[in-house]
Design a binder for these strands. Structure first.
Length: 882
DNA sequence: CCTAGCCCT
DNA sequence: TGAAAAGGGCTAGGT
């Protein structure tokens, strides 16, 4: 039976897509427009044709017979811009992930490979679609071979189709005669010469009359003399050479059998992850629709329980089952507790609904008992469930989300469907697939089937994934990290969220009102100074005012227009008095919108803000804070710093705030083993000053403030994964000078240099970097063919172990502080962590003991070859305690 | 929904 | 030569 075959000219389509679509980059700067365009074209064709076979041919760098015939021959790969060139390997990566056969053979161009395959397939009676942006391929058109020429437009992809008949209609020549046309006309893009004086029109007429170049020359003497005939006579060799160059070789020596190009599953996990990495958001929906369409067959095991007797039987039955983890999920939304789902074996997955007979207390107590009895109870997202689930770090809980985060901290969500996909190889419908934007409450009443699936999948995946995740953690050497740091930390973070931080609402309002006064004044002055009203908050409008109306010199442009960022404006302050006002306006509006107004919206009835702390967000192991972010409260500028006065302890309490001193540099000293750096820290003096003194060879006492601040910048640079460019920008010096600073630094601390080099090398070999406590961060960028990407990977390889180890250490300190406070029955509570700082709301009778606990636990959290210093301060608000 | 801009360690 | 110095989150404007 005739098969359908699609053959794609790889470089040609990439080219089309590249020039047809606006430039696109991922958030990391990887160009992706050609790849996206290629895939869009390919999907469109596959959707239309549903072919049996698909293969993509690429040109190689090797010379072909055309180069041998004609030295000036160009071919498609020459002169490719870097933004396109870097996309070629990415494109191949995508095709490989889709299991699409890639064909390339030294000595042949893609055209020749495609021509050969098309001809063979045609002879075997098959239907062929040849996809290319290059009209040269029209010479291959027949009644079985269709040439498809896609055009990428902003509105989508349109495809022109040519069977032999269409070629004749459109160009008035047969496909074969297309070669003769090109022989006469030449082709500038391939550097194929044409006969001078002959363009598209003349060539067309000649071939229409004489059919071929050979025939033209047979009858050349009969033709009436003209410029054209003279040129033809003079350039006979060019015409024949060009015809040969333009002829596609349909007889290549290929081992390849078309059966090798059988289409498999394009929508697999690898492709999904790749598209995610490339940020092809619009294409991800294709996966979701595929995912939803096939069910897992597990749904038949889902049961909705409403009978108290059955519920108690289910809990009782778990007594017999100790060997395997239990999957559990409490189902709730805001303040309504709806029930819980439970899975102890593949065949029986229950949702037990909460109602008058099966009470919330009964369910939560029964659920909490499971873990307390010692069965490993696996949940997805423990911290959130602790509102109802009364278990502690001593109980035998397992959080699959946190486990999955440790195994790969680079993804953004760790929901049950993510875990199913990544660790069980199972595609299950996500919450969004099942319930969309519906609330759980409404789904439970109106969309029972989807609701049951949502509830039960969660417990089922928790059940199914636990052992696998545990095994992977063990193999990666992260079991201890998981069990002794990450799992216990869940409870600590939950405690912090519950406790929250008290805010003086009136003081906050007053702070905001004062800002408004200042903002209004500035606004008026700015309008007066520039002579018109505009939206100062709009970088676009501001750019027009500053750089067009006022004609200020613009430093750099962003994708969208002029840059009006603070560092640009700072340099422009002397040019016009309005610039300083705009900077101040920015400062004030930032404080007003994000902090004064922003924070006010989070104050709860208990006068406190209960922000969230996230454990599964950062790539390095730090925690993050949202709703609101309490880790970025202003401190640098005095006006901003004032806002810390509104954060206050409750009556009879004070704040104790303890900071690590230079924890990351100390970690670096320890991990690098650099004797000189270690010695510097043992002196326990101003480290930036020591660095300046040693790097610039000046006595400690004679270091100038400028030298100290340079050294400080270098120290930061080292931690961030040094680059002369970045350091230069930070210090406002040339790249060359920055380079010299870095060299001097590495001369002073040679083992730091050796250590950083080793970090990069090891990470390149392993594909990930590791902290002192075994935390991993994958660094796929290290293998990128893109210089920028790779450099980024190298900096990440230097930074992650340092930042990550510091994060590990403070997590340990948090756990121990929290534990001591609870065990010692203190009234004081840990309420914030800001990366190297802990804030404890401390009862006035406990100040001395708590201060001691904080400093001791922080300093002893890790045993390094340099001391860990922590300093604690006391205050009646957060401003005073810093 | 993205971006420019800016707050923190 | 060029070129995101690491890790985060929030707001406003503009599509």
């Amino acid at each position: 039976m005739a098969k359908k075959i699609v053959l794609i000219d790889g470089h040609s389509i990439l080219n089309r897509a590249f020039y047809g679509l606006p430039d696109m980059t991922t958030s990391k700067g990887e160009h992706t427009n050609a790849v996206l365009g290629f895939i869009s074209i390919m999907f469109k064709i596959l959707d239309e044709e549903k072919p049996d076979y698909l293969t993509v041919a690429f040109d190689t760098n090797h010379p072909t017979f055309r180069h041998e015939m004609y030295a000036e021959y160009k071919g498609t790969r020459k002169g490719m811009p870097e933004e396109l060139r870097e996309q070629v390997p990415v494109m191949k990566e995508v095709l490989k992930a889709m299991n699409i056969a890639i064909l390339e053979k030294p000595g042949y161009e893609a055209d020749d490979i495609l021509g050969t395959l098309a001809t063979r397939a045609e002879e075997a009676g098959n239907q062929v679609s040849l996809v290319s942006g290059d009209r040269d391929l029209l010479q291959l058109a027949s009644d079985k071979i269709k040439i498809r020429i896609p055009k990428t437009k902003r509105t989508g992809t349109e495809i022109e189709d040519y069977y032999a008949q269409d070629v004749v209609e459109r160009y008035h020549v047969t496909p074969k005669q297309f070669i003769d046309l090109k022989g006469l006309m030449g082709d500038a893009s391939d550097n194929i010469p044409g006969v001078p004086g002959i363009g598209e029109k003349t060539a067309g007429k000649l071939i229409e009359s004489y059919q071929s170049i050979e025939n033209i020359y047979q009858h050349i003497d009969e033709m009436s003399p003209s410029k054209v005939t003279t040129s033809l006579k003079e350039n006979r060799e060019i015409a024949f050479l060009s015809k040969q160059l333009a002829t596609i070789n349909t007889n290549c020596d290929l081992e390849f059998k078309i059966e090798d190009a059988t289409l498999g599953n394009l929508y697999n996990e690898e492709v999904y992850l790749l598209f995610k990495r490339l940020e092809f958001k619009s294409l991800l929906s294709r996966f979701q629709t595929e995912e939803v369409s096939h069910t897992t067959g597990i749904e038949k095991n889902f049961q909705w329980i409403t009978e108290p007797g059955e519920a108690s039987q289910i809990f009782a039955s778990i007594q017999d089952k100790v060997a395997h983890p239990i999957g559990l999920q409490l189902i709730f939304e805001n303040d309504s507790f709806l029930g819980l789902s439970l899975c102890k074996e593949e065949e029986n997955i229950f949702f037990i609904q909460c109602d008058e007979r099966i009470t919330k207390e009964y369910l939560t107590i029964s659920a909490s008992h499971l873990a307390r009895k010692g069965y490993l109870t696996s949940v997805i997202g423990l911290k959130e469930q602790l509102t109802y689930l009364k278990v502690t770090e001593k109980d035998n809980m397992f959080d699959a989300s946190v486990a999955a985060y440790l195994l790969n901290p680079l993804t953004d969500t760790y929901h049950y469907d993510d875990i199913a996909r990544d660790y069980i190889g199972l595609t299950v419908p996500s919450r969004d697939d099942l319930l969309g934007k519906n609330s759980l409450v409404s789904a439970m009443n109106e969309n029972k089937e989807a609701f049951l699936s949502y509830a039960c999948y969660s417990a089922y995946i928790a059940f199914r994934s636990a052992e696998k995740l545990r095994d992977l953690l063990f193999r990666a050497g992260m079991q201890q990290l998981f069990e002794t740091i990450e799992m216990p930390l869940i409870y600590t973070l939950h405690d912090m969220e519950v406790r929250g931080i008290r805010v003086n609402k009136d003081a906050l309002r007053e702070y905001g009102d004062n800002l408004t006064v200042g903002i209004d004044k500035l606004e008026k002055n700015i309008y007066e100074l520039v002579g018109e009203k505009f939206n100062i908050n709009s970088p676009k409008q501001l750019g027009v005012i500053l750089f067009e109306k006022l004609q200020l010199p613009f430093g750099k442009k962003t994708k969208t227009g002029y840059s009006t960022s603070a560092d640009i404006l700072e340099k422009l302050q002397s040019e016009h008095p309005v610039v300083a006002m705009i900077l101040e306006y920015r400062q004030l509006t930032k404080l007003k919108s994000t902090y004064a107004d922003g924070l006010a919206g989070y104050i709860q009835a208990d006068e406190r803000i209960h922000g969230k702390f996230h454990q599964t967000i950062t790539a390095t192991g730090r925690i993050s804070s949202t709703d609101p972010n309490l880790q970025n409260i202003p401190i640098r500028m005095e006006l901003g710093r004032q806002i810390r006065k509104v954060f206050i302890p409750e009556e009879n309490y004070v704040f104790l705030d303890a900071d690590y001193s230079q924890i990351e540099l100390r970690v670096l000293a320890h991990m690098s083993g650099d004797e000189r750096l270690i010695a510097a820290y043992r002196e326990a003096k101003d480290i930036h000053r020591i660095t300046a003194s040693e790097v610039f060879h000046i006595p400690f006492e004679e270091v100038t403030p400028a030298q100290r601040s340079s050294a400080k910048a270098v120290n930061f640079g080292i931690v961030y994964g040094i680059s002369s460019f970045g350091l230069g920008q930070d210090l406002n010096i040339t790249r060359k000078e920055a380079e010299r600073y870095i060299d001097k630094y590495f001369q002073t601390y040679p083992n730091v240099k050796a250590y950083l080099d080793r970090l990069v090398m090891d990470a390149k070999e392993l594909g990930y970097s590791t902290t002192l406590f075994g935390r991993r961060r994958p660094i796929p960028e290290l293998n990128s063919s893109n210089f920028m990407q790779r450099s980024f990977g190298e900096r990440v390889a230097m930074n992650s172990p340092i930042q990550g180890t510091a994060a590990d250490i403070i997590k340990i300190a948090m756990l121990r502080v929290n534990q001591k406070l609870k065990e010692g029955n203190y009234r004081s509570r840990l309420i914030l962590q800001i990366h190297d700082e802990l804030l404890v709301e401390t009862h006035k009778e406990e100040i001395e003991q708590v201060a001691k606990i904080m400093v001791e636990e922080m300093q002893s959290a890790a045993e390094l070859s340099v001391p860990l210093e922590a300093e604690v301060k006391e205050g009646n608000n957060w401003y005073e305690a810093k």
